[in-house]
């Protein structure tokens, strides 16, 4: 099929950017969205232009590297990562807008590449269990009820792609942060740091310049892994509980 692409091009963080139009032809419906961009880039190189920069790596929906706003939606029309979006969801002759994640806390590096290192710093502020190597008890010493383990897993599935932030009108990172808080706080292994974890991670999140949550719910709709919106409510409850305990 033949498509018109309008892609955000920006040479660097301090440089102005603009939407640039490209025509691509011969696109197969079995291509992934990134393979479609590969096709464009191969052509741009031969024409002496610079290819469009975008983050990507595993191309199977798990590393969280890729992500672009496609026709106004984070990761496009399907609930999946950009690498797992296939061209069969578009029609011949379509015009497609492609933009980077837009959020104050995710500055543009180049074209569709943004800086998501704020997520790493949020995790570093408390998104872990302090269990130095070698200190672990026998794995079966603490049984974990299956529903609890399943809840932990459901929240641990977050791939840190940032679609939740990009989809949120406030640029909030509440879904990302709460996914980790819930994953670790429901487990017995995470209990000793339950209060400090939520307080420190929320403080780090706020410090990075993410917006506040107004319960819009766009984040959970955009999440390719289906992290539930309820995580945010649970984090708020954990936060309130920790604040009342005065623990830090």
């Amino acid at each position: 099929m033949r498509l018109t692409l309008r892609i955000w091009r920006q040479r660097g963080p301090e440089r102005p950017g603009a939407m640039t139009t490209y025509e691509v032809d011969g696109i197969s419906e079995d291509m992934s969205f990134l393979e479609m961009l590969d096709t464009l880039n191969e052509r741009l190189i031969l024409e002496g232009d610079e290819p469009v920069a975008f983050d990507h790596d595993c191309r199977e929906g798990i590393c969280g590297a890729c992500g672009m706003v496609i026709n106004g939606q984070a990761h496009g029309p399907e609930r999946t990562t950009t690498c797992q979006l296939h061209m069969r969801h578009f029609a011949d002759g379509d015009t497609i807008d492609v933009e980077p994640w837009r959020a104050a806390a995710f500055p543009v590096v180049k074209d569709l590449v943004v800086d998501r290192s704020a997520f790493d710093r949020i995790i570093g502020s408390g998104g872990y269990v302090t269990a130095p190597t070698g200190s672990a008890p026998e794995a079966h010493a603490t049984p974990v009820p299956k529903p609890v383990a399943d809840t932990a897993f459901e929240h641990a599935e977050c791939i840190g792609c940032g679609a939740c932030v990009a989809a949120c009108p406030n640029g909030s990172a509440m879904l990302f942060t709460s996914a980790k808080v819930v994953h670790l706080n429901v487990l017995p292994q995470g209990a000793p740091e339950r209060e400090s974890r939520v307080l420190d991670m929320v403080a780090a999140m706020d410090g990075e310049g993410f917006g506040g949550c107004t319960n819009t719910g766009e984040c959970a709709l955009a999440c390719p892994k289906g992290v539930p919106l309820q995580a945010i409510a649970t984090m708020n409850r954990e936060f309130l509980r920790a604040t009342r305990k005065g623990a830090r």
Partner: peptide, 22 residues
């Protein structure tokens, strides 16, 4: 055998049986 112990202590959510064991 030590790896499993270590990962469980970190909160890795391995699949579990209904009795709560791995």
């Amino acid at each position: 055998v030590e790896i499993i112990d270590q990962c469980v202590a970190q909160g890795v959510p391995f699949a579990r049986e209904y009795g709560g064991l791995l």
